[in-house]
Each structure stands twice: as structure tokens, then as C-alpha cells.
Nucleic acid binder design. Structure first.
Lengths: 151, 151
DNA sequence: ATGGGTGCAAAGGTTTTGCACTCCG
DNA sequence: CGGAGTGCAAAACCTTTGCACCCAT
């Protein structure tokens, strides 16, 4: 449950004197309707086109960047040549997840985000760097691929 | 101390029946000569050009991809529009580092990689996914930017 | 009404690819 | 020698930008 709503978008846009346009609302709605997916600009564009909603690809790019700046979406790179976005959590306390990437089959799994607090406190104590967010990618072998290897 | 040498490159190339060319050796030497830097293809190309070494940009791209596949280089994205590479550690036991990215000034800091083993064991127990490598990015405010904010 | 936002197309930047030539094994 | 590897330029992508028009506020 992400907790992000159009109302939150409206509030954060207002705080920066930006306008709530149909396009920006629509882009966010795509992410609300596709929870857990890591969508690229082209993905979002395609989904909207499939719903017969007219929007310019450049506008999708601009909306994604804006939504990321508003901390509504989180931008990430999986090395497939394009940026991907995922709906972020509403509060920093809510649990995010790590990404597990199988180097054999390429599958992307998720894992609840825990145990990072100790590490972040350690960073603050030793460097003075105050962590507000993190992104963790694990590379390895998923269960299925490991079972195949064992054979 | 990364421990990666040209000999290791030779070995790993041989294991896959690939050839040790001057270009591949030269690209790796750039990383050996620039420890701790996160170089893009263009960076490597520029460095070699500055040393009057002739190499094609496409070859740099191909070498980087190959070296990453051989687990000699590690590929990473910092959201500046290009892939960057860093020399990897020779053994999984050697210590890597996390990346701290200041969202205010953009500075990139590093932090010794510890405390991840518990998390990786947890992943294995709960999902069957065997982690062999990880990449951690922390976003936040560096010491200098925090001091400026406090004023 | 007015300035920010959009759409389109063109430009920009990174990375990949086709093909003839080179050179490692 | 033979085939993998290289260099070059073109192509393929992803993303950004300029500008005329549109529409939230």
C-alpha cells in the first residue's frame, strides 16, 4: 500500500506553485493502477496510448521527472538503457523493498527493506552524512536457477 | 587495493576462449591507474587519447562490457546519463564500499561496506535467492551541506 | 488573462551495429 | 592462417529542448 493519492500530488504541486494538469494526474494514475511495476517513460506512454489517452511522450518524460522531484516516484536504473520509476512510499517510515536481480535469468524479485537503520546510523556517525533514502540492488542466483544448477 | 592484474584478465579471457588484445589490456590499465574513480566510456576514451593511445570508442564500449561480464569491472549508474565503471574486488570477501550521493550538491562519497552479510543471509533463508554481489546507494545530505543548512 | 504546461519535431547524447580490415593464438 | 577483435561511420535509442499553442489558476 503506497498511500500516494492524487490529493497528495495536488498538495505538493501547490506548495511549489505548479499546476495540476490532466497529464500529470494521468501519469500518476498509471503508477497507482500498476503497483509494484517498474515502468519506463515508454511503458507509461504505451499504457496510456492503449487506453486511448492522448499525451505527448515529452510530457511523460517531464511528468516523470517532476513526480520524482516531488518524491512521489522513485527513479531507478536496472541497466537496460532507460530510467524506470516506481511509486514511492508516502512516509520515510513505511517499508520499501530491495531489488534482487538474478544474473542468470534476469528475473527481478523484491525483498522487504529492513536492517538498514544500523548501517545508516553508522554512516552518520562516521561521516556526518545524513541518509534520507537508499537503493539496494542484490545480484545473485534465484531459487529456480540454483535448483537448475544443482542438477 | 583491488588485486586485479593483467594476468587475471588473461586467465579469465582464456577460460572463455577470448583473446587478450592490446585494447582490452589498455582499458583495464586505465582502471588500475585510476583507482577509486567511476569512469564512463567517454572518460576512458579521453584518458587514452590524452596519452596518445589510439583506440576506437566502440572498442572501449565493447571492452567495458566484456570486463564487466568477466567480473573485473563493476557497472553502475548514477543518473547522469551514462554507465560508469569501477574496478571490482578480486574476491567476494574483500571489502567494497557503498556510495553516498548528496542530493544537495551532488557530491559522491564512499563508505566501507560492512554489515550486509546479515541481510544477505536473511534474503537466502527467506527467498532462496543466493546473493553474490550488491550495490548500495544512499541519498542524503553531506556534512558540508548540512552545516550550511543549519546556519 | 497570463504564465506555466503541452505537443510536436528536431536536436543532443550515449550506446550499438554492419562491414571491411587487422592481428592474436 | 582463420576467426575473433577492431575501427569507422551510420544507425538506433533514450532523453532533452525550442517554440507555438493551450488551459489551469
Amino acid at each position: 500500500m503506497s498511500g500516494i493519492t492524487i490529493d497528495i500530488l495536488r498538495q505538493r504541486l501547490q506548495a511549489r506553485q505548479h499546476k495540476l494538469t490532466t497529464q500529470r494526474r494521468t501519469v500518476l494514475e498509471v503508477f497507482i493502477a500498476h503497483p509494484g511495476e517498474h515502468l519506463s517513460a515508454e511503458d507509461v506512454y504505451g499504457i496510456l496510448r492503449g487506453e486511448d489517452i492522448d499525451i505527448g511522450l515529452a510530457t511523460v518524460y517531464r511528468s516523470l521527472e517532476l513526480l520524482a522531484n516531488l518524491n512521489i516516484l522513485q527513479r531507478m536504473e536496472f541497466g537496460d538503457g532507460c530510467s524506470r520509476y516506481e511509486i514511492g512510499t508516502m512516509s520515510p517510515d513505511e517499508h520499501q523493498h530491495h531489488h534482487l536481480i538474478c544474473v542468470k535469468c534476469g528475473k527481478l524479485l523484491e525483498f522487504p527493506d529492513d536492517l538498514m537503520d544500523d548501517l545508516e546510523n553508522d554512516v552518520l556517525e562516521k561521516t556526518g552524512f545524513k541518509v534520507v533514502d537508499h537503493q539496494v540492488k542484490f545480484f545473485g542466483y534465484c531459487k529456480e536457477c540454483r535448483e537448475k544448477l544443482d542438477k
